[in-house]
Design a protein around this nucleic acid. Structure first.
Lengths: 191, 191
DNA sequence: GGGTACATGTAATCAGTTACATGATTTA
DNA sequence: TAAATCATGTAACTGATTACATGTACCC
């Protein structure tokens, strides 16, 4: 099934992020991918620069991308989707995920284990408000044309940030009301 | 600083999760930790069983836990906090995190790259509603006594689920209105 | 005493992160 | 042409996941 000299690999979210970006831009070097990420999907799902060197290489090895090295000075590697890559992306997007996404929020974990809610809320709120401004600015750029997906995703992110703000405001308020400092982490939790 | 024969390790969220649980329950075997996780913090930050074998071992190696092997039949390993472990946990909880937690939501990533919003929303909503019921039941168990942290964290999780539901409902509605099926993933995103 | 569920671990693999190292282009 | 910045990669490490493998207790 798979042409010789190709490795079977498992496709991760990172893989699809790369495939998806390449579907949008046609072809790109890792550096260009990084730029793309930073001003689009990276606000939702960021990743370190080095992954944008490693992951395309991996995908090319497995036949999802073509890799094409420039001959001149920079000798950049240029990647583009193969048919196989396009199909994989298509299959992926057209299969709805039912899975619930855990928050995995470090601040909530600290809160769970007894951090001072008021201090934590302050730190979180300042960051969240900055983030909200950024998102609102970006949303203003939507002129209603082009694919809706990115904008809807951005809207979802905005909802999330807004809710987080309300949540932490409430937590801070409750914390101040009960005057409880950090609660000791030694009693039992939810039964 | 560090007693001989001990490895320096980096403490990850998983590490603190284990430290935190042990602070709550005193001592435990990996199996008991797993049970604890499943009915408390695991709803917020889950992890595979095997990590609850690997991580305590790692922590013990580095002097954060004592490891104590039973002599009888099961020969279970039993872990408890050392002073060093308790301090590390304390330091961690008392240092507020400002960092923003990305959603890293697979469904939103698919949406971004052109998945059909209506289908995706259906899948997500069914899962989210189940999750909401579970959280509501758990919240009913709060009798107001004991540390507030876990309950506040649960409240935050509930807010998050509720918002997600509203978000996906809106996405589905918009998707139906514009009648747009899955949008092709080939135009440009946020400028 | 045989089956089933509960309990306990190890091994192999690998994606992702951090750190290191260098080359090319522009501008002052 | 020197400095600064932009660009491009590789290497080492390691935490996390998946898969494998076994042992103990209980129940009928």
């Amino acid at each position: 099934m798979l042409p010789p000299r190709m490795r079977e690999i498992q496709l991760t979210p990172t893989s699809y992020l790369v495939l998806g970006l390449l579907a949008q831009v046609g072809e790109a070097t890792p550096y260009q991918l990084k730029q793309q990420v930073d001003l689009s999907v990276g606000h939702l799902w960021s990743l370190p620069r080095s992954q944008l060197y490693a992951e395309p290489a991996r995908l090319a090895q497995a036949g999802y991308l073509t890799e094409d090295r420039e001959q001149d000075g920079r000798r950049r590697k240029r990647y583009a989707l193969t048919e196989r890559g396009r199909e994989a992306l298509q299959r992926w997007t057209s299969t709805p995920t039912a899975e619930f996404t855990e928050l995995r929020d470090l601040a909530l974990l600290k809160l769970f284990f007894g951090a001072d809610p008021v201090l934590l809320a302050e730190a979180q709120l300042s960051e969240l408000r900055t983030r909200l401004e950024l998102y609102e600015v970006m949303r203003g750029l939507d002129d209603g044309s082009g694919p809706r997906g990115p904008w809807q995703a951005l809207g979802a992110g905005t909802d999330y940030v807004k809710t987080s703000i309300r949540t932490w405001e409430r937590i801070a308020r409750e914390g101040r009301e009960t005057g409880a400092g950090p609660s000791a982490a030694h009693s039992s939790p939810w039964a």
